[in-house]
Amino acid sequence: MSIKPGRNIRNRFHNIWMLICILLIVLMPVILAFGLYFKASLLLSDNSVFSLLFSKDWQPSKQNFGFYSFILSSLWITILSLAICAPVCLLSAIYLTQYARSNVLKLMHPVIDILAGIPSVIYGVWGIIVIVPLIANHIAPLFDVETSGYTIIAGAIVLAIMIIPFVLNILIEVFNTIPEQLTEASLSLGASKWETIKFVLFRKAFPGIISAFGLGLSRAFGETIAVLMVVGNVVKVPKGIFQPGYPLPALIANNYGEMMSIPMYDSALMMAALILFVVVLLFNFASRFAITRFELRI
C-alpha cells in the first residue's frame, strides 16, 4: 500500500514532535539542576559548601548565609511527620488489603483520593483553624510549655496528614502485588492470619514499605505553603518540638519579594532550592529504585 504524500508529512511531523517532547522531559531534571546551580554559583564562589550548610549565621544584609538552622528545621519537621504518618499508614494499609471487606475499600478509595487532591494551602488553613489552637491550648500545657501553637509539631502534624494519602496509596499497591498464593501457603502450614501477616507478608513487603516511607519523606521535605503557615518561621536552631521552626521551603517562599533588593540574597535562595532539589531527587531516586527492584522480585 502506498502512503499519500500528505499523510507522510503529517506522520513526519508527529514523530518529530513526539521526539522533541520526550527529549524535553528527559532533559528537564538536568535543566532544572543547571538553572538553579547557575544562580547559586555566585554564592558558592564566595563560600565553601561546608560553611554554608553548617553555619548558623543568617544575616542576609551582612552577606552571611548559613543554612544550618533551616536545614535542621526541615529535618525535624520531616522526620517527625513521617513518624506520625508511618504507623497510621502501615496499619491502615494492612487492614485495607488483608482484613477489610471490599465495601470498606470502596468507601476509603474516594477518601484517600480527596485527601490527596486537597491543595496545600487548604491544609495550611486547616492547620491554623484546628491544629495550632489545639497545640497552644491543650497539648503544650500537658508538657508545661507555653506557646502560640505555631510550632514544629504543628507543621509535622499538618504535613503528616498531607502525605498520608500519598504513602498509603503506595503501601496498598505494595501489599496488593504480593500474590495471594503466598498467603495461602503460609495459612496451609497452620499459621494464623496474623502470623502470616507478621512473618510472611511484612517480610516480603519490607523493601516496598521502606520505599513508600522514603517517598513520603521526600514529599514532606519539599512541601511549602502548608508548613509555612503553621510553623512560626523564626530563624533559630530548634531545640524541641514546641519551638517554632523555619524550614527551607518556607525560607524561599517568604523572602522572594525582597531577594532582588539585597545583593546575593537571590543567589542564597536559589541555593536553598538547589539543596531541596538535590535531597529530594536523591531520596526519590533511592526509593523508586528500591521499589522497582521489589516489583521485579515478585
Binding site: 522531559i25 528537564m28 531534571p29 532544572l32 538553572g35 538553579l36 517517598l215 521526600s218 514529599r219 521535605f221 519539599g222 512541601e223 511549602t224 521551603p249 524561599i252 517562599a253 535562595l269 536559589m270 532550592a273 531541596l276 532539589f277 529530594v280 531527587l281 531520596f283 526519590n284 531516586f285 523508586r288
Partner: peptide, 14 residues
C-alpha cells in the same frame, strides 16, 4: 516519577 517528586517550590524558584 522522579520529576513528579520535585517540590513545586523548586519549580517556582527555577
Amino acid at each position: 516519577d522522579l520529576l513528579w517528586g520535585v517540590p513545586s517550590i523548586v519549580y517556582g524558584a527555577f
